[in-house]
Structure formats: structure tokens, C-alpha cells
Amino acid sequence: MNERISREDVAHVARLACLSLTDVELDAFTNQLADILEHAADLDALDLETVEPTAHPLPLINVFRDDKLGEAVDREKFLASAPEVENNQFKVPPALGEHS
């Protein structure tokens, strides 16, 4: 078991990301992710008490667009790119629950 991240952690994250990994892949990714975390841990050597967390690398704030309607789109074009369509809606496997 790696100190930075466990094989179980990686399996959990993979499951959340809907990835199925083989045992060999699981070992490989555990090592790689541990190395990445190890590298990030170098920052611990610095005193960062007074540094604000960075939300974005660009020195910009408040990038807006006006609330103006764009051109109408052709829904057929979008629907045509879906694997399955019914009643002008995207047909998908059954799913449980609602989000928002």
C-alpha cells in the first residue's frame, strides 16, 4: 500500500468516473497518482499561510456576455448525431432519480 494513495482509493475514484480498470492498470495508476501527489506535496515545504488559493490561472474576473438571444438552431442536426432518437428526444437507457 502506497502512503499517498491506496489501491482502494484509486478503485473508488475509477468507479466514480465509470472506468473499469484491470488489476494491472489499478497498480500502475496507483503508483502514478502517488507520484503526482508526492510531487504536489513539495509545496508543503513553503510557507503559504498568506497566499490566497488560486481559482484560475488567468488574472481576469467578471467575463460576461449580454442576455441576448442567439440564432435559432436546427435541432435535426443535433438529433442526427445521437445514437437513438424518439419523438425528437434523445433516447437513453433507463436511469433512476433526478438531479438539480
Binding site: E86, F90, V92, P93, P94
Partner: peptide
């Protein structure tokens, strides 16, 4: 999403349609 089949119950739907 609207759930199709299974009498409209989300637990038993055959498939879903998304708008």
C-alpha cells in the same frame, strides 16, 4: 428526462427520453 415503460414508474422504466 421522461421515463418510458414500467407504467411511468421511474424504478421500472424501459428507457428514458431527454429534452
Amino acid at each position: 428526462s421522461s421515463h418510458v415503460g414500467g407504467g411511468g414508474r421511474i424504478h421500472e422504466a424501459d428507457y428514458s427520453l431527454v429534452d
